[in-house]
């Protein structure tokens, strides 16, 4: 479903005297339908950089990221913006650690938007949104409030609902359970496993080893790029 080969990514920080930060060198990853691959490695090894590159949020310097989108393999690295937007609407889901949403918009509409973007009618989209929010423990009385005043855990559950309200052929998860309690972690683990069963290819960063063991079929270890010292 997603196949990345030979990814290089170096950040050039112009404001810090053009410092070069090489984060990915020849990174490769293949994930099939129904499979979950966990990215592991020390902090700063490039796990998040790889995940963001797989979403097209970071642009790699070299390599290929093929995503199966409506029966064709599309290379995200070279695809034009409108193709990436289309892939993100229908194929490639991403759950970030933090909720980023339009101010003032109630959570039910934030979550329903994912379904509406797939062509669902307004009422249907809201029904699905309400069901997924409730499933993730967001009480109906909160559905019509904007999430600005929600706790970190509640915001993360809104973020999860926003993705899990629709099925995704490829799903990228960045610490999806980081600020959740045990009961909600368990709900998320079951959602991930249900997504796998329905054919999603999942790539995730899971800090929590117990969560990782319950969802991941494979672990891809990422080592920090080492630059040989000049002799």
């Amino acid at each position: 479903m997603i196949e990345a080969t030979g990814l290089d990514k170096t950040f050039i920080l112009h404001l810090q005297g053009s410092a070069r930060l090489e984060v990915l060198r020849n990174a490769c990853l293949t994930v099939s339908a129904g499979e979950c691959v966990a990215l592991s490695g020390p902090s700063g090894a490039g796990k998040t950089t790889l995940l963001r590159s797989l979403y097209g949020n970071y642009l790699v310097d070299r390599g290929e990221i093929l995503v199966r989108h409506q029966d064709t393999m599309v290379d995200l690295v070279t695809a034009p913006a409108e193709t990436i937007i289309d892939i993100r609407r229908a194929t490639l889901g991403y759950v970030s650690q933090f909720l980023r949403a339009m101010p003032r918009v109630p959570v039910i509409d934030i979550v329903a938007e994912t379904a509406r973007d797939r062509g669902a009618a307004a009422a249907t989209a809201r029904e699905h949104a309400a069901a997924m929010l409730s499933h993730l423990g967001i009480a109906p009385r909160l559905h019509h409030l904007p999430p600005a005043t929600f706790s970190g855990g509640e915001q993360q559950r809104v973020n999860l609902a926003r993705s899990f309200v629709c099925p995704w052929p490829v799903l990228l998860l960045d610490e999806p359970t980081a600020s959740l309690d045990a009961a909600n972690r368990d709900i998320v683990v079951r959602l991930i496993n249900a997504a796998k069963q329905s054919g999603s290819a999942v790539v995730g960063i899971f800090h929590d080893a117990a969560v990782r063991d319950r969802v991941a079929d494979r672990v891809l270890h990422i080592d920090p790029v080492t630059t040989p010292e000049l002799a």
Partner: peptide, 21 residues
């Protein structure tokens, strides 16, 4: 120029980096 979140989260040009920072 490019996809909005890509340009803002991974700016390549020096001026864009200044703008985002």
């Amino acid at each position: 120029s490019g996809l909005t979140d890509q340009v803002l989260d991974d700016p390549h040009d020096e001026y864009t980096q200044l703008l985002v920072a």
